[in-house]
Amino acid sequence: MGFNQPLDPLLHSQLRLAVVSLLISVETADFVYIKEQTAATAGNLSVQLDKLSTAGYIAITKGYEGKKPKTTCKITSKGVDAFESYVKTIQQYLKP
């Protein structure tokens, strides 16, 4: 397989890619919803969300719903760009 350009290592990881694919389709999503949809453990998901947030791919808002903490995630425009170029690169890999 001839690779024209390397894949973004931040996105080329199962859980982080799942999170970004989920967030690209919605406006905002709660931590609990992401955890359910990706079937990840809370600890692992937290670590991966932090990595994506540090890279500026997602924005995390922490608040409260009553007394329960509520973490909401939203993809940033930088995240959308990264996702689009990741998909383009993947498509090149998949070309026969």
Binding site: L17, A18, S21, L22, S25, V26, Q37, V87
Partner: peptide, 8 residues
């Protein structure tokens, strides 16, 4: 990617 977009 397809699976996650489908779920959302």
């Amino acid at each position: 990617i397809n699976a996650m977009i489908g779920r959302a």
